[in-house]
Amino acid sequence: MPTGVAMRDPREQLFDAAERVLLRDGPNALTSRAVTTEAGCAKGVLHRHFADFDAFLAELVLARVARVGAQSAALREAAGSGSVVGNLTAALTGLFESVAVAVVGLVISRDGLRARLRQAGLTGIPVLAQAAVMIADYLGAERERGRIAAEADVDTLALTLIGSGHLLFAGTEGSPPPDGAVRTVVESVVAGALP
């Protein structure tokens, strides 16, 4: 980017560029040079806003974790409306059609990034851990309304749904699973918990 041309929100522009590189080329291709080239700016822009590349990646993951928080609030508000299976299917599809699967691969592939995320207080695999909490909270809210059986173990159901959803979307080379696959998994997992 030429000197003197202002960037709108440099941090968000760099995050968006990193997501594009991550989705298109995978975690091994994600370098500071690839990000700044994709963002159309000088490499120094990244280092002006972040201490180093792992700090940038940690902030990227934390920003994506925050998105799960927003999805969580929307899903919890849906409790009591629509169908439980429909709400869960939409939530899992929305979660995994985003950059979530690629972020998981990124976190797994970079030791320095995992260390930074632990320092930030994140445990487990970021995004997946927060998504499991999101699903468990939703199922708990549905249980309070009588739409999930009182004895249902919502934490185990949530982990099963997140793991199954991740497996459906991982390794699909950017294309979603076949039509109805997510709904079929959700129906199977929650069948015994529906009253």
Score class of each variant (00 low, 15 high):
E59M: 11
V84F: 07
A74V: 15
L139R: 01
Q119W: 09
L62S: 07
L161V: 12
D111E: 15
L128V: 12
I108L: 15
A73T: 03
V154I: 06
D155E: 13
A70L: 13
F169R: 00
V133Q: 05
L159F: 11
A131I: 08
G124W: 01
V99K: 00
E59I: 09
Y138S: 02
G80E: 11
L168Q: 05
S98H: 06
I108A: 14
A66S: 11
V101N: 02
V85I: 15
L113H: 06
G86N: 13
E142M: 08
A90P: 10
A73L: 03
S98W: 03
E142R: 05
V85T: 15
V104S: 03
I125M: 06
A132G: 15
L139P: 04
S109N: 14
A141H: 10
I125N: 04
R143V: 07
E151I: 07
V103Q: 03
S109K: 13
V154A: 00
I135R: 02
S164I: 10
R76H: 12
V68K: 02
R116N: 15
A131Q: 02
F96Y: 13
L122I: 05
G124C: 05
A90V: 14
R145M: 11
G69T: 00
T93A: 11
V85M: 13
T160R: 11
I148L: 09
R64L: 01
E151G: 10
S83F: 11
T93E: 10
A73M: 02
A131K: 02
A131F: 03
E59H: 14
G82Y: 08
L157Q: 02
M134L: 15
A115F: 14
V127W: 01
L62T: 05
R110Q: 13
G105W: 12
R67F: 07
E144N: 14
R76S: 09
V99S: 01
S72Y: 06
L106T: 06
A158Y: 00
A78V: 12
V154N: 01
A149Q: 10
I148P: 03
L106G: 01
A73V: 02
V103K: 03
G163Q: 11
L95Q: 08
I162S: 02
